[in-house]
Design a protein around this nucleic acid. Structure first.
Lengths: 130, 130
DNA sequence: TCGTCATTTCAAGATTTCTTGAATAGTTGA
DNA sequence: TCAACTATTCAAGAAATCTTGAAATGACGA
């Protein structure tokens, strides 16, 4: 059970990495590209980011285990690490919410696990509060 | 579809709030207490936190929509906002991973949605990489 | 009203993260 | 080898976040 501390450290890094507009944009852009990925240049072009800034954020995501980089000729291709993202979400659900169906109910609400398409609400915390 | 930007802002706040050891500890401590919650004093005692620091982090969580506070006599009772946490997770799954079963596979791996108990792995990103 | 308990706010310093332009490194074709 | 192209690293400043002790607020019982 010392492993769970390392697990938390890793998740904290992933959450910190996700907690930034630019990096969330990067994940969103890269996900549809799947394992094929996208060269850095085209990413920067798509999001209108200066090169050093792009490198900075991609490095952060890579270090957090959320994206992978591979060199192809002159380009560096970035792609999402599905396992990294999935396990981060999994940790949130299990470590925080294992015994709390109320939380899971809100998770499932997004229809991710419901092929019938019930409830497409992507409305996050707070929106329903005011 | 301008609502999705507000949604993202809210999720970013929630992710930033979660991306801190102390605050993740707070969530973990408060979740088992459910709606009953826990007075600030006892929380600080349980985690060994000085009062101002506790207030600072609880305020951050509250602002992010992850916990709620209510006053009872001299005490302030804090409890988790299940909807806030659930919707944050939901956003990650839907906005980032809607079309990507590979990610969802890793999410489900934690057994949250599998009563059969298959795969209790709480192992987060990266652990399986080195 | 006074004193006490529970909690928050304030102010200052320390630390970390983010952005930017300039310089550097790796890869390819001529 | 040289020039062009792609991407990262560096250094410095700006901004945001975290921690801490001291002071302030709010609620209750005597």
């Amino acid at each position: 059970m010392d492993q769970s501390k390392a697990a938390q450290t890793q998740v904290l890094a992933a959450l910190a990495a996700l907690a930034h507009v630019t990096r969330l944009d990067l994940i969103r852009l890269l996900l549809p590209a799947g394992d094929t990925g996208m060269p850095a240049g085209r990413i920067g072009e798509a999001l209108g980011l200066p090169a050093p800034r792009l490198s900075f954020h991609l490095a952060a995501l890579e270090q957090a285990g959320l994206v992978r980089a591979r060199r192809v000729a002159r380009n560096v291709i970035y792609s999402v690490d599905a396992a990294g993202i999935g396990q981060t979400i999994s940790y949130l659900m299990n470590d925080c919410c294992a015994d709390h169906p109320e939380v899971l109910a809100h998770c499932a609400h997004g229809a991710a696990f419901r092929p019938d398409g019930q409830g497409v609400g992507t409305t996050p915390a707070g929106t329903a509060k005011t």
